[in-house]
């Protein structure tokens, strides 16, 4: 009997000790650095290979789930009211031929349609039919220079505290055949909630990579000097830059 009491009390001592120990470790910068090392391993081993599965029309979610809120500032509201007639997608940075694309020009380029699944980092997923321009076609048009390594997407939405949403891909990810600048969802122009007029679709990574309300694509050698320097709004909040897992 004594032995059982001993075992039970040591088990409960271990359990109650876990919380404070886990908290202390979680708050330790070195521990966090070690934990974050898994990202490099995942990026190296999984990377961006293969093609995301493409689905049938019947698999599409007609009510594609919305996360986040459309920009509500007067500039966006005015742009939206004119059907984005004044919108330009500026592509600049480390490129030979910077260019500002009006929507009509983007629509005149070859269009790709993909029915792919959007996997949110939160754990849910939804299937949409997306149409638009391949990111690689845009890159071909502007010709990245030799020092170009990343493609940064600057967006029109902010978090209410002045931080604009942005995202980034490396050139390999950006040239993936399914990396798409989508202008249509489920056979209709993108609505404000889903990122009108142009959003990114990166079906081989988690949803936060697929930035909405994109207005500028900046090709850079490094994103260290943009915002907090981790390559994206959610990356700056501690999420992984490589979001393939």
């Amino acid at each position: 009997m004594k032995r059982r009491i001993f075992l039970a009390s040591s088990a409960s001592a271990i359990l109650t000790g876990c919380g404070p120990i886990a908290n202390a470790l979680n708050n330790n910068a070195t521990v966090q650095k070690v934990l974050a090392s898994a990202e490099g391993l995942n990026h190296a081993l999984i990377g961006t290979r293969g093609l995301a599965r493409e689905y049938r029309e019947s698999d599409v979610d007609r009510n594609f789930r919305v996360n986040g809120f459309a920009p509500s500032d007067s500039r966006y509201v005015t742009l939206a009211a004119s059907n984005f007639a004044g919108y330009r997608l500026l592509v600049d940075g480390a490129v030979d031929r910077r260019h500002a694309f009006p929507l009509g020009e983007l629509r005149a380029l070859p269009q790709q349609t993909q029915i792919t699944r959007h996997d949110c980092v939160e754990g849910w997923s939804a299937i949409g039919k997306w149409s638009g321009v391949r990111l690689s076609d845009i890159l071909d048009a502007v010709r990245p220079r030799n020092d170009a390594r990343y493609v940064v997407f600057h967006c029109m939405d902010n978090d209410g505290m002045g931080n604009l949403y942005y995202e980034s891909l490396d050139l390999h990810q950006a040239r993936h055949p399914q990396a798409l600048l989508a202008m249509r969802l489920n056979d209709a122009p993108l609505d404000a909630a889903h990122g009108a007029p142009v959003r990114l679709r990166v079906p081989t990574q988690l949803g936060y990579k697929s930035a909405k309300w994109v207005e500028r694509i900046e090709v850079v050698g490094s994103f260290a000097n943009i915002a907090s320097g981790r390559g994206g709004y959610w990356e700056d909040q501690g999420y992984e830059w490589y979001a393939g897992i």
């Binding site: 886990a22 908290n23 070690v34 934990l35 974050a36 898994a38 980092v121 501690g238 999420y239």
Partner: peptide, 15 residues
């Protein structure tokens, strides 16, 4: 972590 923190949970989990 003991509070809501998806990014933190993912770091622990994937490592």
């Amino acid at each position: 972590p003991g509070y809501q923190d998806l990014a933190g949970g993912r770091r622990w989990h994937l490592f």
